[in-house]
Nucleic acid binder design. Structure first.
Lengths: 200, 200
DNA sequence: TGCCACTAACTATAGAGATAGGTAGTTTGT
DNA sequence: ACAAACTACCTATCTCTATAGTTAGTGGCA
């Protein structure tokens, strides 16, 4: 059910169309919670049906229209309630660690390639996270800027520091993943120097 | 599709009944890939249908029987192929980081409680991981011991070190999560010393 | 003999999520 | 005038996961 609250979180910064939401998602909230637009549109509909959002049809060009969603009071209440409720703990489900545990079954070349792929993915991801973190620190992040408009300047520091805190957590994770993959590469070099032997 | 390969991984150590698998899962592979038995039983059936496993009905007590699954050659082949294929990258989907980014909406008390809950969950999890890691290092881990029987003693070190490597990654993750939660608790103390003010 | 915890093996159902499409209007550049 | 890219909004389908049951035999002990 977190998708619903990720959407509420985003829409508290300003009203948006489904399209806006799906674009914003890939730039900001997605670092924290990813969703494709095939999930976003139906969920927005359901949230409107449940009274958490209200929509206004606004003209777009000559003939076109678009639907802009705004969070209702009930939506704000639901979001606050979720914020105050215990977090759901996610179960471990990460193919990389599963594979790592059985690396004796892999071709040395494949093992190396996979560890590199994993490291490179996280390196890229880390760069994105650090770039976004920087836009939070200097407050140039567009969604953040829109969000701060609703608040008194005395609150800004508090709000921004929570966002940075979230990114710091993600950055730590990414760094840990990269370090781990690099250790893995060294391990494969050490153990698979000669052609691998097969189990009996 | 990783469940299928997690099951294959486990069953390469020795043939097992569905019940064994679901028990073993919670003790070993589950640290790396969690699944409830309502997923395990149907998946084992499908794997048998697909020829990756073969089952033998063995008597149990006076009237009872049980079904023991063993990996077929096709199963070994499928497992090896999966091991050599690129890892699927999981999208970020972690409610804790989502919440952290919007902590200005939470009651200070609730924010503290959640961060503590998160930290305590990971602390517990870390203890379990470290305990399991220790049984790998001294080779007292039962599933590992059964697995090593299929291999020449010269291979043991290699196999064990990959398992330890996987656990090291999980341990790093757990430690990072705990450190992050503790930083969060300090942050909440710093920012929420006085009663929180509401957005305009 | 009766009870209880455990072993064994599921089923049913709903919701979440991934992948892959489709349709129609708008804006921009050539 | 036309194409290409972008905005807007979905739908369909399949698989994956979570939660909560069900049914039946086993082994021990009070």
């Amino acid at each position: 059910m977190s998708l619903r609250f990720a959407l509420l979180a985003l829409l508290t910064s300003r009203p948006m169309t489904g399209y806006d939401v799906s674009k914003q998602f890939s730039q900001s909230v997605a670092h924290v919670w990813h969703a494709p637009d095939s999930q976003i549109y139906p969920e927005l509909n359901r949230m409107e049906r449940d009274g958490l959002l209200e929509s206004a049809v606004v003209p777009w060009g000559k003939k076109g229209t678009k639907k802009e969603y705004a969070v209702t009071e009930a939506g704000v209440k639901a979001f606050r309630e979720w914020m105050d409720s215990p977090i759901e703990i996610r179960r471990q489900r990460e193919p990389a660690y599963l594979k790592a545990a059985y690396l004796e079954w892999a071709e040395p070349g494949a093992a190396r390639a996979e560890l590199k792929q994993f490291r490179d993915h996280w390196t890229e991801h880390l760069a994105m996270l650090e770039a976004t973190r920087a836009t939070l620190v200097d407050r140039s992040h567009p969604t953040l800027a829109r969000r701060l408009e609703h608040y008194d300047a005395s609150e800004w520091d508090r709000i921004v520091r929570y966002k940075i805190f979230a990114y710091d957590g993600l950055i730590d994770q990414a760094r840990a993943a990269i370090t781990w993959a690099e250790r893995g590469l060294l391990l494969v070099e050490e153990l698979e120097g000669s052609p691998s032997t097969e189990p009996a």
